[in-house]
């Protein structure tokens, strides 16, 4: 459990949109099996950062060192595109807030899961279908829905299908953008429970962007608070939430409605 190399080592990542700051000089290490939350209001730069980490946006400066299985730490920013895309299909995963952005809505549920396997070289139809059904089961979707398109699924089921599609290749690092965002609270609870179980069983590391402090308290080991593109506070999740030091974090924590 005491790996000496962080899975992800982020160094001085900055991204500007013209004169506007996306994120500025963000650095952190993420260790194997750690779940880190990033919170902040809209425009704080948390989604920009996540998209830089996941390779959807090119940062202006900085390095993102990922500890690859074969060659140890490699910079995702300067890595050649084909190699980066191969990593993105196998070792990395990205769960979008809106399942429509992460699923192919016209393709069957089984096809959605199988597609990622095929992209990594799987060819045997029977085995791909069996793996897809296995994964649908793990995200609590009945096997008899395997041929239905995600269009026919509820929002919560679509989000669970997106998880299955992402996790079928056994990634080590998952990026999540408001994964419980559009869901009813009861559906949210089920997804949270599922996510916690999968993180534990697969030893996953994850970076989760959300504005929901209750979600990070239950899901994340660590927390980073962003404001105006910068990280203003970070630490253990309960440390940041129970003993917030930065004015913005104090405002954020004290603004949560109690139920």
């Amino acid at each position: 459990m005491t790996a000496d190399t962080p899975l992800l080592s982020v160094r001085g990542i900055s991204k500007r949109y013209g004169a506007r700051t996306g994120c500025a000089d963000v650095s952190f290490d993420l260790w194997p099996s750690e779940v880190m939350g990033i919170v902040g209001e809209s425009g704080s730069g948390k989604s920009t950062l996540l998209n830089c980490l996941a390779g959807h946006l090119a940062p202006d400066t900085g390095a993102i060192l990922y500890d690859t299985r074969a060659e140890g730490p490699r910079d995702l920013v300067t890595m050649a595109e084909p190699e980066r895309r191969m990593l993105a299909r196998t070792d990395l995963a990205f769960v979008h807030q809106n399942p429509r952005d992460g699923l192919r809505m016209g393709v069957s549920a089984g096809g959605n899961v199988g597609e990622r396997l095929m992209a990594t070289g799987a060819r045997h139809y029977g085995r791909i279908r069996a793996a897809a059904i296995d994964w649908l089961g793990r995200v609590e979707i009945a096997a008899d829905r395997v041929d239905d398109p995600p269009r026919a699924f509820s929002g919560g089921m679509q989000q669970r299908l997106q998880l299955a599609r992402n996790l079928v290749t056994g990634p080590r690092l998952v990026f999540m953008d408001e994964p419980t965002g559009g869901l009813d609270v009861s559906v949210q609870a089920r997804l949270l429970d599922l996510l916690r179980g999968l993180v534990r069983q697969m030893g996953l590391s994850a970076v989760i962007v959300t504005h929901d402090l209750a979600v990070v308290r239950l899901l994340a080991d660590r927390l980073m608070v962003m404001q105006g593109g910068r990280v203003v506070e970070s630490g253990l999740t309960d440390q940041v939430l129970d003993d917030p030091a930065h004015p913005y974090t104090q405002l954020l924590v004290s603004s949560v409605l109690q139920v």
Binding site: W31, S186, A189, R190, D193, L218, D221, L236
Partner: peptide
């Protein structure tokens, strides 16, 4: 570092607080 404390809490130190914080429905 967070990971040091996380490990300590996992393996060495238990805590019974006055609040039960759990994922609903578990």
């Amino acid at each position: 570092e967070p990971r040091t404390v996380i490990r300590l809490r996992r393996e060495t130190m238990g805590y019974v607080s006055q609040f039960l914080r759990v994922v609903p429905r578990v």
